[in-house]
Design a protein around this nucleic acid. Structure first.
Lengths: 213, 213
DNA sequence: CCAAAAGAAATTATCGATAATCGCTTGTGA
DNA sequence: TCACAAGCGATTATCGATAATTTCTTTTGG
């Protein structure tokens, strides 16, 4: 079978979705490529329905673009598109930071664990790991607000996938990427809500500019 | 035929979608109600596929909730849920305001038109109109950032639908609601980006608290 | 009388087939 | 030669039917 079978309890359309996400992220399906429903269905050994469903869902997250009656295409990860994502992250995470302060000040372990993960990944030169734990770190801030809607929206930005693409392609200094999170952690531990917001926003700005060569 | 036929060129699933949105907003499908695919299909005279597709899409916009293999349900518009929406709006619109400043300072007509619409609606005691133009006003701020992703996310919050529900049910003073937007307009015309952000956030706060009786 | 299990009913997920539509190619007439 | 229309191949949108799963009901054993 072509689609991953990792999560046994998953629906077909979810498996298909994960597979397509992977292939878009790793470049197997390059930007602009047309994704034909029946073609993918054949490739994955399923019928059109789950593929169509997966594509529609990915379209709502902007990983692909669906034009009615015409088809769906892999979105270009152009600089402009990435900039839009970073701006939205800035809005969400910046606002989330102050709201998350009480919870994370009381228990900063989610941030600490993520930082520890990043450091270990940096030590072993593990780009995947950096992407994962960096995502964990930022996600923890949103989680700590207790706002499920914001978390859902944040998740729909596919931060991990995009971070991975950036890290893998962009020759990012892994150690520096890990340590860049330290001031934010410290602000939650011993700073103020406003400082947290400020640092999160600055952090976002750095990365929204860095990734271009 | 049960589904509206207004836009002739629309796909079935879009017609179905619009119909469901209408019925959720006007309370025909009350919060918590289970929406059974084949049942709706029969009601609308279509097959399961377009209904399923419509429901999935509405699920991605959070108007309904889809639980895999279990069904989809109309989301409750509880106070908590509304608070989450307002917090996300605060994050998006607050951040958008400063970024929108140059464009709206140069040409504040979208805001002016929306305000004019609100005033007219208030004069004729038109709750629908207030909801529509108030939505236009806030949306214009997001539009002016030029960030399509943020606009899509903002749109997915169904601000107009929720505003309408609030206005219709909540005995809101229409004149006051209209005039509350004046300081924001003035800030874009003759203030600073930071002031815009500040006022937009305050405006959001007011309304995130007002609607409870 | 109650808890667990077996069976039945309802509903979602998926399938394979067909209808509708789109974009391209080819042919036609000026 | 070129604008345009008819025809064709490819693909999306929709259908009706079936498989898989969940939920509800009933039965069984203690």
């Amino acid at each position: 079978m072509a689609v991953s079978a990792a999560f046994e309890n998953e629906s077909l359309s979810e498996k298909v979705k994960r597979t397509i996400v992977d292939r878009v992220v790793d470049g197997t399906y390059p930007p602009g490529m047309r994704l034909v429903e029946l073609q993918l269905a054949k490739e994955f050994g399923v019928s059109q329905a789950p593929v169509r469903e997966a594509l529609r869902e990915l379209s709502s997250t902007r990983l692909v673009e669906n034009i009615p009656r015409r088809g769906t295409f892999v979105r270009s990860a152009s600089q402009d598109d990435l900039a839009e994502v970073y701006f939205v992250r800035l809005a969400l995470e910046g606002t989330a930071a102050a709201a998350a302060y009480p919870a994370l000040h009381a228990d900063p372990s989610p941030l600490r664990n993520a930082l520890a993960g990043m450091r270990e990944a940096a030590a072993t030169n593990d780009a995947h790991g950096i992407a994962k734990y960096s995502t964990d770190f930022h996600r923890a801030v949103v989680v700590a607000t207790g706002n499920r809607l914001m978390l859902e929206i944040w998740d729909s930005l596919y931060v991990e996938a995009r971070t991975m693409a950036t890290v893998v392609r962009g020759h990012v200094d892994l150690h520096a990427a890990a340590e860049a999170h330290v001031p934010i952690l410290e602000a939650f531990e011993s700073g103020t809500p406003d400082l947290c917001t400020k640092l999160v926003i600055e952090h976002q700005h750095e990365y929204s500019i860095l990734p271009q060569e």
